[in-house]
Write a protein that binds this DNA or RNA. Structure first.
Lengths: 210, 210
DNA sequence: TAGATTGTTAATCGATTAACAATC
DNA sequence: TAGATTGTTAATCGATTAACAATC
């Protein structure tokens, strides 16, 4: 039974999706139970860390038995908020924006793309998988008329901050930022960055590291 | 003057691209010098941490003055290995693979996409921005005949591990993994993961966190 | 019951912050 | 020189690991 959710460290939070991913794979593979020790081998963590992590949220296991894979998966699904449905809009219908819109893999977790927005007249009016591309000027009214939980910012980096401000003012709570800038936002908003260039630089660093 | 590069913690390593990004922006904005204190405000870190971070690599500053933006940027560029040129191939020419191939933003940092590989006969023979899409069966011979530093894995997750193994056997050192699996690799290879689903789950978690 | 493995407390390790002497 | 700010050492904080009593 999960405890009241208190403060969870960044480190723990970043491991939760990984647990969820592995548990989903295990469930699919028909594995019914797993001990923290087995799981630690599988995931490259320590058994101790796994038990500590889970105990941030309450005990999910049983002494002498371990964890029931399906149950544990379901608990973590709830912790991650993946029992909810999320509506996403994509700001910027360039390469990346279109690729995100085309990708259906997030729908199984309840994430649905509802619209894209762009300034390019050639793109406006088109659609991707039936998802319309609108003029960026219609963004605010779209948000007020439709429930939008998350906005993925796929604009050039110069436009990202401005877009974020409008989005947050319009009531969007979650920003999934793909632009290569650090966006400043008020407290109530949440920004999750996907800095592809940072990731590539890190790879470069480790490749030249000796 | 940069010291011999020793062990650098994961935490420090992950901050280096961010420094590089901010310094590049500052240089572009014509800022000549900056103190650790000013930089700390700008980046949301502490001045102490910034000085500690830089001292992993040797001292780049001057007492009483601070840091010269251009010089510091150049030092970090070298630390990150961004003075080199990298050849990238993309495995999987679906939405994401194509988006990456279309994106030119990494070229300014010396990353060039040389080819894509896929199993889909409809895609094989086509090209993106002049970059050819080849049959996946030609991957090994392409690598042996061309210098390939980095392979971006954009395949479905079921194929990612196998692709990684072939790539590493063929001599590719860096794997930029976009598939939603944790790839197991031998020591000499380096994997940098971009787990978009993990990122989205984290966003969901923080949005439902109260 | 005996064996296994959790949940949890205590010990260790590493990263961040604070402080200050060195020095430009 | 005096003021500013680094480079670096010491103190603190937090995260990971180890240990073990609780218990299935």
């Amino acid at each position: 039974m999960a405890k009241e959710k208190n403060y969870v460290s960044e480190a723990v939070m970043r491991r939760m999706p990984k647990y969820y991913r592995h548990l989903t794979d295990m469930e699919k593979a028909g594995i019914e139970r797993i001990s923290s020790k087995e799981l630690s081998k599988r995931m490259g963590l320590t058994a101790s860390q796994i038990r500590q992590d889970f105990n941030c949220f309450g005990g999910f296991g049983q002494q002498g038995y371990g964890y029931n894979v399906s149950e544990l998966r379901q608990e973590i699904q709830k912790i991650l908020g993946l029992h909810n449905e999320y509506h996403i809009i994509i700001i910027g219908a360039g390469n990346l924006g279109q690729a995100l819109a085309n990708y259906t893999g997030f729908e199984k977790d309840g994430f649905f793309v509802k619209a894209l927005f762009d300034i390019n007249p050639r793109l406006i009016g088109m659609s991707i998988r039936g998802i319309p591309i609108y003029d960026i000027d219609e963004m605010e009214s779209f948000i007020s008329e439709n429930e939008v939980h998350i906005a993925a910012i796929c604009t050039p980096k110069e436009k990202a901050q401005e877009a974020a401000e409008i989005l947050i003012q319009s009531g969007v709570k979650g920003i999934w930022n793909f632009a290569a800038v650090d966006i400043a936002v008020p407290n109530q908003a949440i920004v999750e960055n996907v800095h592809l260039s940072d990731s590539l630089y890190t790879l470069s660093f480790r490749m030249s590291d000796d």
